[in-house]
Design a protein around this nucleic acid. Structure first.
Lengths: 199, 199
DNA sequence: TGCAGCATGTAATTTGTTACATGATTAA
DNA sequence: TTAATCATGTAACAAATTACATGCTGCA
């Protein structure tokens, strides 16, 4: 699944311009599938080329034409197929976890700073999701409620975990060297142990 | 932060070959920063070029030379700097959530299937992390314990959330149309409402 | 005066993934 | 005999990010 498919999906819910779609990608979708103009505009162009959407240009005073896109029958079918076909992927990429893994290469104050920072980011995230939910008013569509709730639940779980386990990373005694030895030994299947040949 | 930096970090803990590093990326790092040969080998070549690591080729019978990499002083410094400098990013990209958002475009059975699938994937993930932890024996290094625990906590939280909220997505009455209308109205700042010009 | 919002896009770059290419050993 | 482990890499491709480029309106 890529941004093209996502645009198609959003257009299933109604006509929109690239600018409109961007707003969705920055609000409801931000925590699990963000996208910028650089991906959205080219996607729409391709979709129009393929006949999966139609473009209607609406002239405006002193602004570029507002290009409103509407999904076609073909587009709708393509979307539904790719939604059902895909074996969905769920990927996390976290530099925070990298930093935590290597915590003993950080100064304690840096580590503290980073943990504080992370916590702040997480609660900001929850607040942001709450705001979005409020903006929908009383009738939040089920899918939207599900993904917003998911985001909040995850952020909360992460914050708790970090709070409850930060002590793991602070102690004075590092075990890093033990791990090192373990890895070197287990991977020494080579014939020679001499590291010095052919520097 | 990129795979190069990660390799550098892992080499701070001891010499290793590309093959060795891959194993780390596929075990401890898999849930938050996976990488394949296609990223690792080129990374090591670049790092060697830049003098951040040194390469020692160890001849082997009927196998390609085993190339063991060792970090240099310069490499260590570069790593520590980038670890401290980075304002860490934490990114999720989930096609499952996309599918849930668009749940009412799926057949109920497909949705059920997908939810079951997701749950299975999550518990497999927890099992995998448990196994890795066990393989370390009694002395799991703190950073490792932190990231493995994090992975388990997250997966568990996700599974709970999905279980507790799947009902949100199943009801017969869809609210999708309401949302559609809402968006179309709120974005109608254009001068003309006529979508038919310049098809 | 300056910034946020409206509104479009392109092009270069970065980054990583996938597929390809090779080939021995060992345990089930 | 077949799959997994060991062991290296390259090249084409896909995808998305970032920076660039333009320009009006309305508010503080």
């Amino acid at each position: 699944m890529d941004i093209k498919t996502l645009c198609l999906g959003l257009l299933c819910d109604g006509d929109a311009s690239g600018y409109d779609l961007k707003k969705q990608f920055e609000s409801t979708f931000k925590h699990f599938y963000p996208a910028g103009y650089g991906s959205i505009y080219p996607s729409l162009a391709v979709l129009a080329d393929q006949g999966l959407v139609q473009c209607h240009a609406m002239p405006q005073d002193k602004k570029p034409d507002r290009k409103v896109y509407r999904i076609t029958e073909a587009g709708r079918q393509v979307f539904e197929t790719s939604l059902a076909d895909a074996s969905p992927e769920h990927k996390l990429r976290s530099e925070y976890l990298v930093a935590m893994y290597f915590a003993d290469y950080l100064e304690p104050e840096q580590l503290e700073q980073m943990l504080t920072n992370w916590n702040q980011t997480l609660s900001d995230g929850v607040a942001r999701l709450d705001l979005i939910e409020q903006e929908f008013g009383p009738d939040v569509p089920p899918g939207t409620r599900f993904v917003l709730g998911f985001g909040k639940a995850l952020a909360t779980a992460m914050a708790s975990y970090v709070e409850e386990n930060r002590s793991l990373l602070l102690p004075a005694t590092s075990t890093r060297n033990k791990r090192v030895d373990a890895r070197i030994e287990s991977s020494s299947t080579a014939q020679t142990t001499n590291l010095e040949n052919r520097v």
